[in-house]
Amino acid sequence: MGLIGSLILGAIAGFIASKIMNESSGTLKNIILGVVGGFVGGFVFGLLDLNASGLIGRLIISVVGACICIWGGRKLF
């Protein structure tokens, strides 16, 4: 997946995570949250020895990771 595809997937994942966690955020924050969430989710799923393939699998991992990031941000601030 190219850079543009990753940013679009990140924006979608960040948007979904912000709705799940009842967080109001802008488009740029959603993109950043989704991309970072993809890394966090990949790390967490790797620790659990789980993996997902395909677009839907990456989206689920990114959403879970973004939710973890929102939760962690709430705990820190």
Rank of each mutant, 00 (worst) to 15 (best):
S53Y: 14
L76D: 12
G14R: 15
I61H: 01
L59E: 07
A17I: 11
A17G: 12
K75G: 01
A66V: 03
F45M: 15
R58S: 15
L9F: 13
N51G: 10
I16D: 08
G5H: 13
I56P: 13
M21A: 12
G65P: 00
D49G: 09
L76K: 11
C69M: 09
I4E: 07
A11R: 09
V35E: 11
V35K: 00
F15G: 13
R58H: 10
V44Y: 05
I4F: 09
R74W: 07
L76A: 10
G54S: 07
G14M: 05
I4T: 06
N22V: 04
R74N: 06
G38W: 02
A17Q: 06
A11W: 14
I56M: 15
C67L: 01
K75A: 08
N51M: 15
G34K: 09
G38P: 01
N22P: 04
I70M: 04
A13F: 03
S53H: 07
S18I: 01
C67W: 00
L28K: 05
F77N: 14
A13D: 01
A13P: 05
K75R: 14
L55I: 06
G73E: 02
G41Y: 03
D49R: 08
K19Q: 13
S25Q: 14
S6I: 05
L76T: 05
F15N: 11
V63I: 15
S62Y: 01
I12T: 10
V64F: 11
G38N: 10
V44E: 06
L33C: 03
G73M: 08
G41R: 10
